[in-house]
């Protein structure tokens, strides 16, 4: 294998991993606060379509990203009102959000099918970003660096800061956190909003960076894989990074095999790979552990009311 090929494969891998990393990192924070939001796929699609629509009409990819983050937050707020304020079942509400995101994105996107926008550009000047070798490090767009920086930031926030500690307390024991005087619901709202913003950006990565052309349901279930990654990570940002890049590798393999035209393997079988890999990984996680419920926050998915 030539160096050029290796560089190109690494570039694909990093690009494929980034939306997964963004979306799952957001979900990790929400789950750390005790909220199970299964609507990741829906929030990603809302972000994807909002990002595309704004980038298409303003001509600015930057505005598109901002819009995507806002759309993700807006979608997350629907979830928050229902699941946190009205104490609806979180599983059902998350599912509803995903169904909503699929419908809304394809309704808004109906006028954009097949349209293209300018792809999200690399951050660094061409001398670095197009260098045959150095582009592995310098050839990426803003979201790649942002996602990596956020892994470090979230890890630091959760482990080393007081607000991070409070957020974890809310997820581990909401009743105690409330008794001490922390605003459980408000903190959960904030965590869900953060999750929505990152899911929105993750979705926009599909419509603005990976394939800057609108297509229906372009996230193709990656939101669900992001949810599985949080389980895989045992709710640790560092392991989440590993998991996201592992899945990026699986998808890159799929793309490479497709491009190389591996004839004995049907393309449909290759397309199954990420989903089968997810099941395999979830199973291995369970096999590898013998005690407790993985390391899930104790109050994950349970509604909380102060009265």
């Amino acid at each position: 294998m030539t160096t050029a090929m290796l560089v190109s494969i690494l570039m694909t891998l990093i690009a494929a991993s980034t939306p997964l990393l963004l979306a799952s990192l957001g979900e990790l924070v929400a789950e750390k606060a005790g909220v199970l939001n299964l609507g990741v796929e829906g929030m990603m699609l809302c972000g994807a379509v909002a990002g595309f629509a704004v980038a298409f009409s303003t001509g600015s990819t930057g505005f598109g990203l901002v819009a995507a983050a806002f759309a993700g937050v807006a979608a997350a707020m629907i979830f928050a009102v229902l699941a946190l304020s009205l104490m609806a079942n979180q599983v059902a509400t998350g599912l509803a959000l995903t169904i909503f995101g699929i419908g809304t994105s394809s309704l808004i996107g109906a006028g954009f099918v097949g349209r293209t926008v300018t792809r999200l550009q690399p951050v660094f000047p061409a001398a670095l970003s197009e260098h045959p070798l150095l582009r592995v490090i310098f050839g990426h767009d803003i979201l790649v660096y942002l996602s990596l920086a956020l892994v470090a930031a979230v890890s630091f926030f959760l482990r080393r800061t007081r607000p991070g500690l409070i957020l974890r307390a809310v997820g581990e024991n909401d009743a105690s956190a409330h008794a001490i005087g922390y605003p459980v619901i408000a903190i959960r709202y904030a965590a869900v909003a953060f999750g929505g913003a990152l899911a929105g950006l993750g979705g926009a990565y599909f419509s603005l960076a990976l394939t800057p052309m609108w297509a229906d349901r372009l996230t193709a279930g990656r939101g669900w894989i992001a949810l599985a990654l949080v389980v895989f990570s045992a709710w640790k940002p560092g392991r989440l990074l590993l998991g996201a890049y592992l899945f990026g590798a699986v998808m890159t393999l799929e793309l490479q095999a497709k491009a190389a035209g591996v004839s004995w393997l049907a393309p449909e079988v290759l397309a199954m790979a990420p989903y089968l890999a997810t099941i395999a990984v979830l199973t291995m996680m369970s096999l590898g552990r013998r005690t407790g419920r993985l390391d899930a926050p104790a109050c994950l998915g349970k509604p909380f009311s102060a009265t």
Binding site: I78, V81, L82, L86, A88, N89, A92, T93, L95, A96, L97, I99, F100, I102, G103, T104, S106, L107, G109, A110, D216
Partner: peptide, 18 residues
């Protein structure tokens, strides 16, 4: 557009949960 049906169905589920 046909996609409106899906959005409408999801809104119904939101309202039910609410």
């Amino acid at each position: 557009p046909q996609a409106a049906t899906g959005m409408f169905q999801a809104m119904l589920l939101f309202m039910l949960l609410a």
